[in-house]
Design a binder for these strands. Structure first.
Length: 583
DNA sequence: GTCACAATAT
DNA sequence: CATATTGTGA
């Protein structure tokens, strides 16, 4: 820290870039001279060094005596990369590498291993003039890190995996396949613990509103307005505030802001639904205007807690079923349909004209909407799956198996930096596998395996008993990482169990249940809290994870869509209609 | 480029 | 606390 602070703070007199203390290392005296001259022209404070060894010595002796290092790659006494490594480990200074050739692999290597820049000789003034940016950038990161120092510790768990390179083998012969975009460095061991760590820990963990988490959220809301008749209303009313919800949810790591954000999204979602409903209704001819729906809802009275679920369930069905219908409606009755709130409105959809477009989109994807990563319907997942099962969709089947592993991964918090390469690869692979080789589950799984561990998500989802042995951790702080999931993920038995459990479920509740609107409602009801939630969590954990569901191939969605259309057709969600907020 | 989401700003 | 804006990943 000392070093960083003194950084450019010392030359207070001059504007920041000026006085930047640069250490230049190059075995070629000529270049050394040239660089020195150029750098001085930039008003930098220059120190030159013909030997990497000496440079290192200087750096060690005067910790914090330099702001940045510029080093040639090819040097007799020590490989430039080695110097880079040591500097990175010991003082975490920005290092710029340079060489005459721009061989890609070499540049790559330099950057991968922490060089903040790689310059090719001949070096021009303008390149040097700007090097201060690296110091500045680092500085900024430091500040950020300090500020957001909080709970991240636990999160860093998986970190880059690069951490333990401090021993010499840092640079093995070839390039490492994983481009560490940012150099994560070394432990702060050595005295100077500068919390600097600049590059890495920069990002904050994002809260992922998994189904599970959302359920807690909903529950909390219901608790607040127990006597309310209509949840939608409730949610949108002021008495529900984020603070209260947060308290009721009782999830330590969650912040009020998190809840507020989610609430906002949820409200938006509800309002959107309402609109859809209205449209549908009017289209259907039943001038809606009221009642039945309300009454029904009222009947639920004290169970309004359930309303939520109900609503959701219903909505979901309607939405799904509606697709085509709705769209048509829109076209004919474009009325007030101003789809979403202002925010979203702006997003006029492509091709389609006027106000319809936005809505159209919604309608178009509703089915997907719920499944889409991050979007998860507020509760319909299980049903969808259901139909899939019935449909006996091949790919689906496969998909499910593959997906299972992830079910346990429900994550509430996600660390951005980690995902990069791996997560991508896994995603890329899965779909293909599913589609092309439906039967080759093993293959899929295995490949998945490789990817998944890296995927850094914090597992916290109460996994189905059958699959996972009990749900030890209902909610847990981001800090916990569950290695267990890995093993679980690939345990074949999991798959089997899950499947059977699903079967059971299906037999219990025949698809017919979904045929009529009422029934839909009932089902939703039945399931309500204990049941519904239970089922969701226990029976269909895999579907609980949005990310996983996301892997479902498009055609599947399509298929589903149809199913639902037939099943619930005009079903109007009684409950939903209720005065959704604001209206 | 678009979209949804969550974070953050107002 | 509500709502608008921004940043980000897909």
């Amino acid at each position: 820290m000392m070093e960083s602070s003194k950084g450019f703070s010392s030359p207070r007199s001059t504007a920041f870039p000026a006085g930047l203390r640069v250490l230049v290392v190059d075995d070629d005296p000529t270049w050394l001279k040239i660089l020195e001259k150029m750098l001085k022209k930039c008003s930098y404070e220059v120190t030159t060094c013909g030997l990497a060894r000496d440079a290192l010595k200087l750096l060690r002796e005067r910790k914090g005596g330099y702001d940045i290092v510029i080093s040639d790659v090819n040097m007799p006494d020590m490989d430039g990369f080695k110097l880079l490594e040591l500097v990175g480990l010991e003082m975490d200074l920005p290092v710029i590498m340079m060489s005459v050739d721009g061989e890609t692999s070499r540049v790559k290597k330099g950057v991968q291993h922490g060089a903040c820049d790689y310059l090719l000789k001949p070096i021009r003034m303008k390149e040097l003039r700007n090097i201060w940016q690296h110091v500045f950038r680092k500085r900024i990161h430091e500040v950020r890190d300090i500020e957001s120092h909080e709970g991240l510790e636990g999160l860093q768990v998986t970190q880059s995996g690069f951490d333990q390179f401090d021993d010499g083998h840092f640079f093995s012969g070839e390039d490492m396949l994983t481009p560490a975009k940012k150099r994560k460095d070394l432990e702060n061991k050595h005295d100077e613990k500068d919390f600097t760590d600049s590059s890495s820990s920069t990002k904050k963990a994002r809260v992922v509103w998994s189904v599970d988490l959302h359920q807690k959220f909903v529950k909390a809301v219901n608790l607040i307005g127990y006597d309310r008749k209509d949840v939608t209303c409730l949610v949108c009313s002021a008495e529900v505030g984020p603070k209260k919800i947060l308290d009721l949810m009782n999830i330590p790591w969650l912040t009020r802001e998190n809840v507020a954000s989610h609430l906002q999204k949820y409200r938006l979602y509800l309002s959107r639904l309402q609109k859809e409903n209205d449209l549908k209704i009017s289209y259907g001819g039943m001038k809606h205007s009221d009642l039945n729906p309300q009454d029904a809802a009222r009947a639920l009275s004290r169970q309004n807690s359930i309303n939520f679920e109900q609503n959701d369930a219903t909505n979901c069905n309607s939405r799904i079923s509606g697709n085509n219908l709705l769209i048509q409606n829109l076209n004919s009755k474009s009325n007030e349909i101003n789809p979403r709130g202002t925010t979203i409105t702006e997003k006029s959809s492509p091709g389609i004209s006027h106000s319809l477009s936005p809505l159209e989109q919604e309608m178009k994807f509703p089915a997907i909407d719920g499944i889409t990563p991050g979007s998860y319907s507020w509760r319909e997942v299980p049903e969808i799956q259901f139909h899939q099962e019935n449909a006996g969709n091949q790919p689906e089947d496969c998909f499910r198996r593959v997906a299972v592993p992830m079910g346990g991964l429900q994550n509430h918090v996600q660390i951005d930096q980690l995902l990069p390469v791996t997560s991508i690869s896994s995603k890329a692979q899965l779909p293909n596998l599913i589609e092309t080789k439906p039967l080759n589950v093993d293959y899929a799984i295995s490949s998945f395996t490789q990817a998944s561990p890296v995927k850094t998500r914090i597992d916290s989802f109460p996994v189905p008993t059958k699959i996972h042995t009990g749900n030890q951790q209902a909610i847990q702080p981001p800090s916990t990482n569950k290695p267990s999931m890995e093993s679980q993920a690939f345990n074949p038995s999991c798959v089997t169990n899950l499947e059977s459990s699903q079967r059971n479920f299906s037999s219990t509740t025949p698809e017919s249940a979904f045929t009529s609107p009422d029934e839909v409602l009932q089902v939703g009801w039945l399931q309500d809290y204990s049941t519904c939630l239970g089922l969701q969590n226990i029976e269909f954990p895999d579907f609980g994870d949005p990310s996983m569901v996301a892997e479902v191939p498009m055609h599947l969605y399509t298929a589903l869509k149809f199913d639902f259309e037939q099943l619930s057709d005009q079903s109007e969600l009684p409950v939903i209609n209720q005065g959704l907020f604001i209206a």
